[in-house]
Design a protein around this nucleic acid. Sequence first.
DNA 1: TCTACATACTTAAGTTTCTTATGTATAAGA
DNA 2: TCTTATACATAAGAAACTTAAGTATGTAGA
Lengths: 112, 112
Amino acid sequence: MSSSKLLKGSLATIVLRLLEENDRMYGYEITQKVKELTAGEFKITEGALYPTLHKLEAEGLLTTETQPVDGRVRKYYSLTKEGNAAARSKVTELEEFIISLQKVLNPKLGLG
Amino acid sequence: MSSSKLLKGSLATIVLRLLEENDRMYGYEITQKVKELTAGEFKITEGALYPTLHKLEAEGLLTTETQPVDGRVRKYYSLTKEGNAAARSKVTELEEFIISLQKVLNPKLGLG
DNA sequence: TCTACATACTTAAGTTTCTTATGTATAAGA
DNA sequence: TCTTATACATAAGAAACTTAAGTATGTAGA
């Protein structure tokens, strides 16, 4: 993910979250969806995305289906059962992280 | 920072933010403050913190003052003028990142 | 007294996760 | 024809951590 070299470690969670919503997606589609959702703020690079997808597949969290579409090959990814569970726990973990982060960035709030 | 190997890249911003609030702090104090603010959720490791402090100092964002206290040496860090500006921009950047991240994690919100 | 834990800082080795760059290949539009 | 978009893969290098080891003092308990 580009867009400010921030927060390394959230890409896998983002991928799992999108697949939770979309049933199946291919790599390029993921890059476009993220760009769309964030109004261009996040630009996921291929060099980051594809290795992440391969890793999640190797861990048994994703399965793939390859299909030719318009003369090009598309590789669709879907969550496995374990992938679903991982998506839930990783998203929760990230949300809790954000809450803690905000406590540090803005200690005044949350004390009342 | 430990606590779930999440979000690499936010430690420098956290340090700058704390120094914005506190005028001067020493390393160990920073680790304790973060632990306190997050109720133990974030545990900043020394191996992460000290190199970060040295780097920020090398970049001219922090200055140091060493003082012996109770027979031990403390190294106090303060923001320079540039450090103040960097703190503002980095905190803003991180907050914007969080907003974008939430758009991806919860695309339903923010559409109405 | 010895042990353990807290305080306080430093640095090296290894890992993870990116960025940047390169390569392959097809389709569409100027 | 050239560029841009679509679509995937992977290697080299950098950044930011974790883990681990080292140095050193103060305090509290067995």
